[in-house]
């Protein structure tokens, strides 16, 4: 569905996107994850024909993003960072214009708009001026507009930025349902770690305009970080003894604690506890920490995604929006 080769975009001296090779198959749900300024949105803007690449090629839905822009545009949906609906317009009017822009007849556009208004719960506000809608309502309207022509491939640029947790959950549900019902291929960018983690089957980690990792969230974590098992003991002596008993598993004792990094931590703990009991080293406490995608990012780049900007972690953002 998407195929890029050495896709590159320079803005003056800045290499916003620095040679990205990407293949996305039909039906995939892919998240581009990275800090602000990593080149996620620039990549998306090239794939959606909004800006021409400096070099490299990209084929989207079977067509070249430079030479066959209209063919690409006809087949994709795009939900940008801003509000797609004009603030002085009414929601339903915008849905109709959007349908017309994709070549739908008036009647067809009306039917489709009514359908989307219904399925996105916009019935009460569709005939109000967009500027009077809440942030969550506008976002749902944006989604309705992006879906008007039932695209086979949908791009979402930071879809849930500025939404409160409830609206984010709603939005994610809509996206997942869309995929389940219509087998739509979906590419989204996000800097919310939990969003990438819970929604996407495939996470492409982008940093400094390059792809630095590309796999399922579970495999990324297992491969690059693994689980952390912390065993607590009553004495330092016991901890040191445990390190010897479990030396085959690569643990390191520090104080009264033994830390072991491993894949599939929860499966290994029972065996460890048994070995330690046989050795007469009772364990006082057990903690298994599963890695987050942030740990993956930290391992790969030495930096945390949470440090970069003000809104880069998975916790609710201060700027809340009501439904």
């Amino acid at each position: 569905m998407i195929e890029t080769q050495r896709l590159t975009k320079h803005f003056k001296d800045v290499r916003a996107v620095d040679g990205i090779d990407l293949t996305v198959a039909r039906g995939e749900l892919v998240a581009l994850l990275g800090p602000n300024g990593a080149g996620k949105s620039t990549t998306l803007r090239m794939l959606t024909t909004l800006i021409p690449p400096t070099s490299g090629t990209a084929s989207v839905a079977g067509f070249d993003v430079v030479r066959q822009q209209r063919e690409v545009r006809q087949r994709i949906g795009y939900i940008g960072q801003g509000n797609g609906a004009g603030h002085s317009q009414r929601g339903r009017d915008e849905l109709l214009s959007q349908g017309r822009a994709y070549g739908m007849g008036l009647r067809q556009a009306r039917t489709r708009a009514a359908e989307l208004i219904d399925s996105l719960g916009l019935g009460d506000v569709a005939d109000r001026t967009v500027s009077t809608l809440s942030g969550g309502q506008r976002r749902r309207l944006d989604i309705a507009m992006g879906l008007i022509h039932a695209p086979e491939l949908l791009f979402l640029d930071e879809p849930s930025t500025g939404l409160d947790p409830q609206n984010r959950a709603n939005l994610q549900e809509h996206i997942l349902r869309l995929r389940a019902e219509h087998d739509t291929t979906i590419v989204l960018t996000t800097h919310y770690l939990d969003e990438a983690d819970s929604m996407a089957e495939r996470v492409i980690v982008v940093d400094h305009g390059r792809v630095i990792a590309d796999d399922s969230p579970a495999r990324l974590k297992a491969e690059h970080v693994g689980d952390t098992i912390r065993l607590g003991f009553d004495t330092e002596h016991a901890a040191a003894g445990a390190a010897t008993v479990l030396s085959g598993r690569g643990g390191s004792a520090y104080g009264k604690e033994l830390t072991i990094r491993t894949e599939s931590g929860p499966r290994q703990v029972p065996g460890m506890l048994e070995d330690l009991r046989s050795a007469g080293l009772p364990v006082a406490s057990v903690e298994v920490t599963r890695p987050t995608l942030d740990d993956v990012f930290l391992t790969l780049t030495g930096r945390s995604l949470r440090e970069g900007g003000s809104k880069t972690d998975g916790t609710p953002v201060p700027e809340l929006v009501e439904v």
Binding site: R73, G82, A101
Partner: peptide, 13 residues
């Protein structure tokens, strides 16, 4: 500024 121009640019208009 709001993003609706961008949305028009992505359509096949």
């Amino acid at each position: 500024q709001t993003g609706s121009h961008e949305r028009m640019l992505v359509t096949p208009l």
